[in-house]
């Protein structure tokens, strides 16, 4: 049509990022967090479980945030902790997507009895407060990081299924789906090739929001002693130590608390940013 149409999608998105300072900030923070997690071993001055000084050293040029109750460098442990958090966040959200998205697509596409059964099941699962369900599962499966990931992921499955099902339900009536049927496409083909590409942006946005929730839940479970076990450098476990020693060394909790807060904030903002960037019908001024 006009020259605006000549821009490729990618360039359009790029322009939206550059023009919005909040998008730029959010994306840089996400990049920073991810890079920290990936290169934790190179960035952290000391190892995660390395005893480097006396306990409870105050912050110095050598130990930026001081040392913890057994003399490990707190700053280094926070950096290593980002890896635990982001890994759990990613892996558990991936579980939710891998199971929740197909459930939602099938449920919305076929409707009728399939849909009723699936939706009543999710009704039941959604009646559990998320952390309670996760706690129950971890309690039964055993407390370790792998089970934490499974529990957090499973809790989020019905949420993904619900969201995707709603979208699939409205999309399946579209004429391009009927056109696909007229071409002789199978149900699997239509769900996979016609419905799914139209769901990617909403799934992506939900992914980031679920990711934030997963990071939060992992820290909570570890704080309760049901997640990562010592000496793993989980922010939640570090917060637990901080809380235990709050009357003698109140600052211990601050680093881990801030790290959790910032990560959750950044990924929540990323959800807003993606919603804005991926809207194909938005017109740029």
């Amino acid at each position: 049509m006009t020259s605006a149409a000549q821009f490729s999608e990618r360039r359009k998105i790029w322009r939206r990022i550059v023009r919005n300072p909040l998008h730029l900030f959010t994306l840089s923070m996400v990049a920073l967090l991810v890079l920290t997690a990936v290169f934790a071993d190179l960035l952290a001055p000391y190892g995660a479980t390395e005893v480097v000084a006396y306990p409870f050293e105050l912050p110095t040029g050598q130990f930026w945030l001081g040392t913890d109750s057994i003399g490990r460098d707190i700053f280094s442990r926070l950096i290593h902790g980002s890896r635990v958090s982001l890994y759990v966040g990613f892996a558990s959200t991936a579980i939710a997507v891998v199971f929740g998205v197909p459930m939602g697509v099938v449920s919305g596409y076929f409707g009728k009895l399939t849909d009723t059964l699936m939706m009543r099941t999710t009704d039941g699962l959604l009646a559990f407060p998320p952390i309670i369900l996760a706690m129950a599962m971890v309690a039964v499966l055993g407390t370790n990081l792998r089970n934490t990931i499974i529990a957090i992921g499973v809790v989020q499955i019905p949420r993904f299924a619900r969201l995707v099902r709603g979208m699939a339900l409205s999309l399946k009536e579209s004429e391009f789906i009927t056109a696909g049927r007229a071409l002789g496409a199978s149900h699997v083909y239509l769900m996979q090739r016609s419905l799914l590409p139209n769901l990617t942006s909403i799934i992506l946005v939900q992914f980031t929001l679920t990711f934030a929730t997963a990071v939060l839940t992992e820290a909570a479970l570890s704080f309760l002693g049901l997640g990562a076990q010592p000496p793993a450098p989980s922010w939640g476990s570090m917060l637990l130590v901080g809380k235990t020693l709050v009357s003698t060394n109140p600052y211990l909790a601050l680093g881990a608390g801030s790290a959790i807060f910032i990560t959750v904030l950044v990924f929540t903002l990323l959800g807003d940013t993606l919603t804005d960037l991926l809207n194909p019908y938005r017109t740029d001024r």
């Binding site: 002789g184 590409p197 139209n198």
Partner: peptide
């Protein structure tokens, strides 16, 4: 059974905004 016949009979819809997959 319809699959081979789909090559022989096709349909064009009223609304060309709805009948093309917007993501393709």
């Amino acid at each position: 059974e319809m699959r081979p016949l789909r090559q022989e009979m096709q349909i064009v819809f009223q609304d060309p905004y709805a009948s093309l997959n917007p993501r393709f």
